[in-house]
């Protein structure tokens, strides 16, 4: 890698200031949580060579999980491994613990942070192989007429990336709220509004401005009786991104579904919530037929490309199966 300075701010305010100051000076500075995605992108020259990397790991107070009856606060620097193994999270928010467990490899989970996992850049093979694509400021998305087996069936255009984060799907399913720190202090963004489609912003996958950082995540209180699961289909058993996945939570009263949240991963440039399919389940006793109906509804309107039509069938089966499993009907 070309030379850069590693800067270790002691506070969030200082981190934001360093990022802003670098930009004002016409320099390139990137924030680093775990840093593995960033260093890979720098080595592959997928991003401009940095003048500095602002290491967030020394900022105190961002690496803890506080679970309580009124809600849960997760620091942005909590590692994916810690999140996956946390007793409170496993008990109260199984969908999130399972999504965290499904990430990459032990090595990546041990350094990777929840904020970094949520904000990781796309893993489209054209983007990562250095093609001059739309996401990198070029003038076309090569997946449109190219190898689009892994690409979006919902929300695509003009870029057809899929969002690579497992935990992002779970956080949307849990109605999480994201704490964002920036030059003007802190703001809170619902998870459902955090991620943005390529048609709204081609350069970024979320609402963060240049000097803003995702620093924490709040989860609403977990409800008794609400169960959840994260199911991920991969083209091998482990160490890859979802071909399709589903983050599902169900609030059950006996056999009857009081409330449901279904978010599909691997199918769209953002975590893809399918409210119409949730509506199919609301207030109904879960049966195999109803689960199938919800699954059919979830995939209505999908627009597959030439080589990813299989995702429609696969996601449909995954939704049906997950609804039955989580409701205890299977």
């Amino acid at each position: 890698m070309k030379a850069f300075a590693n800067l270790s701010p002691a506070t969030l305010a200082e981190a934001v200031e360093l990022l802003g100051a670098a930009r004002a000076n016409g320099e390139i500075a990137y924030p680093a949580g775990g840093g593995s995605d960033l260093l890979g992108m720098v080595k592959d020259e997928l991003v401009a060579a940095p003048d500095s990397i602002v290491d967030l790991k020394r900022i105190p107070g961002l690496d803890s999980i506080r679970v309580s009856d009124s809600g849960t606060a997760i620091g942005g620097l909590v590692t994916v491994d810690t999140l996956a193994g946390d007793e409170g999270i496993r008990l109260r928010y199984p969908v999130l613990a399972e999504a965290a467990a499904a990430v990459g490899t032990p090595q990546l989970k041990n350094t990777g942070t929840i904020a970094g996992n949520v904000c990781q850049r796309p893993w489209c093979w054209y983007f990562r192989q250095g093609f001059d694509c739309l996401k990198r400021g070029g003038d076309q998305c090569y997946s449109v007429i190219g190898e689009n087996q892994q690409h979006a069936i919902f929300g695509g255009g003009p870029s057809f990336i899929v969002h690579p984060s497992d935990t992002a799907n779970a956080l949307v399913a849990l109605d999480a709220e994201f704490q964002v720190a920036g030059p003007n202090g802190e703001r809170r963004v619902p998870a459902s509004e955090f991620f943005v489609l390529p048609r709204d912003n081609l350069q970024r996958e979320n609402v963060l401005d240049a000097d803003e950082l995702l620093v924490g995540i709040s989860l609403p209180a977990s409800q008794a009786g609400r169960n959840g699961a994260y199911r991920k289909v991969m083209d091998r058993e482990a160490w890859t991104h979802a071909v399709v996945s589903v983050a599902l939570t169900l609030d059950m009263d006996g056999d009857v579904c009081r409330d449901a949240c279904i978010v599909l991963g691997g199918v769209a440039p953002i975590p893809w919530r399918v409210s119409a399919a949730e509506d199919v389940l609301h207030g109904q006793g879960i049966t195999a037929e109803l689960a199938q109906q919800a699954a059919d509804t979830a995939l209505e309107g999908a627009q597959p490309l030439a080589k990813n039509g299989y995702k429609v069938t696969m996601a449909r089966a995954l939704v049906r199966r997950s609804v039955l499993e989580v409701s205890g009907t299977a």
Binding site: N6, S8, G35, I53, D55, Q107, L108, N110, T111
Partner: peptide, 16 residues
């Protein structure tokens, strides 16, 4: 191993 956890030493700066 870094503080007991396995990590990729190629993807972690020495200063960290």
């Amino acid at each position: 191993l870094l503080d007991g956890k396995n990590i990729y030493a190629c993807s972690y700066l020495a200063v960290w």
